[in-house]
Amino acid sequence: MSRRLETKTLEKVWGRKGISAPFSNDPELQIGEIWFEPQAPVEDLLVKYLFTSEKLSVQVHPCDADAQRMGLGTVGKEECWLILDAEPGAAVALGLDDEYSAEAVRAAAIDGSIEEMLVWHEARPGDFFHVPPGTIHAIGPGLTLLEIQQNTDITFRLFDYGRPRELHLDQAMECADFAPYPAQYRSHVRGDASEVLLDGAAFTVTLLKGPHEMVGLEDALVIPLRGYLALGDERIDAGSCAMLASGDLLTTSEDAEAIVAQSD
């Protein structure tokens, strides 16, 4: 049965106060993430909004095979980001500026010089980044983004700017790619038509533009970014996420812009 997913709001040291509409929160809370509680039959995907005022840790996630080999479960963590808002100069770090040995990256993580190895990519609204498992990455300040990921929280931190949190260098060395970020993993939404943003990964991400009426769509998560969508008589506005069960009817408004995520 299709339904609106429950929202969970998380404070983070790198979050922001006074986040803007369509979200409404206590202006004194430093919100870092708003995410939606997964439910069957789409419990293998997790959708989050992120709001940043500081750099997030430099980190890496394992693929399915690495997670299984390391005894961490059956799935790793593949993710993607759609940039919704960005202050001037805002950027995300993806990949390294050259190919390195594991020993060199480990030493750089310990002494902090890994920041000099990272490649920071300017981020603008409409930019879309696929972050395959193994990609060394970080998110910079001044960003609002939508993240879609496999529903695990297997994160190995390599560097955290002096914050008193645990690092996971041994595990990170086992699954990281010590190389540049491939250019084909970055794109920019056209903005004038529906399009597939990600395919051939652990999940598929599609951008819907304008009015649609769909029935029989395979189980999916639908996230309205503008306008609204309707599941039967229930209206789902921007800032929410709905789980669409196979066979149920989905309609979108004339001015709608929505993301549809489905497991492959």
Rank of each mutant, 00 (worst) to 15 (best):
T135K: 12
I136R: 08
H137V: 05
A138S: 15
P141I: 09
G142S: 05
T144E: 13
L145M: 13
L145F: 14
L146P: 11
L146N: 10
L146S: 00
E147K: 01
E147V: 10
I148W: 06
I148S: 08
I148K: 08
I148R: 03
I148L: 12
Q149M: 11
Q149E: 14
Q150A: 04
Q150R: 00
N151D: 02
T155P: 04
T155E: 03
F156Y: 10
L158C: 06
F159S: 06
F159D: 06
F159Y: 15
F159W: 15
D160N: 15
G162D: 00
R163F: 12
P164V: 03
P164M: 08
R165H: 01
R165V: 05
L167R: 03
L167I: 02
L167W: 02
H168F: 11
L169I: 11
L169A: 05
L169N: 04
L169E: 07
Q171F: 14
A172P: 08
A172L: 10
M173W: 05
M173H: 03
E174T: 06
E174C: 07
E174A: 12
C175S: 01
C175H: 05
C175F: 01
A176H: 10
A176L: 11
A176K: 04
D177W: 15
F178V: 07
F178D: 07
A179P: 02
A179M: 11
P180K: 11
Y181A: 14
P182D: 09
P182R: 10
P182A: 07
Y185H: 14
R186C: 03
R186Q: 13
R186W: 01
S187N: 11
V189N: 00
V189M: 11
R190M: 11
R190L: 14
G191W: 05
A193Q: 12
A193D: 13
S194A: 12
E195V: 13
E195I: 12
V196N: 15
V196S: 14
V196D: 15
L197K: 05
L197P: 04
L197I: 09
L198A: 11
G200V: 15
G200E: 14
A202H: 11
F203V: 05
F203N: 02
F203I: 02
V205E: 10
T206L: 10
T206F: 01
T206H: 10
T206N: 07
L207N: 08
L208K: 00
L208Q: 07
K209F: 01
K209W: 04
K209S: 00
G210K: 13
H212G: 03
M214H: 09
V215S: 02
V215P: 06
G216Y: 00
L217S: 09
L217E: 09
A220L: 04
L221S: 08
I223A: 09
P224T: 10
L225P: 06
R226C: 12
G227T: 09
A230M: 15
L231E: 06
D233A: 14
D233K: 12
R235P: 00
R235D: 07
I236P: 01
I236G: 01
D237Y: 06
D237W: 01
D237H: 12
G239A: 05
S240W: 10
A242W: 06
A242K: 10
A242H: 02
A242V: 02
M243C: 13
M243K: 10
M243L: 15
M243V: 03
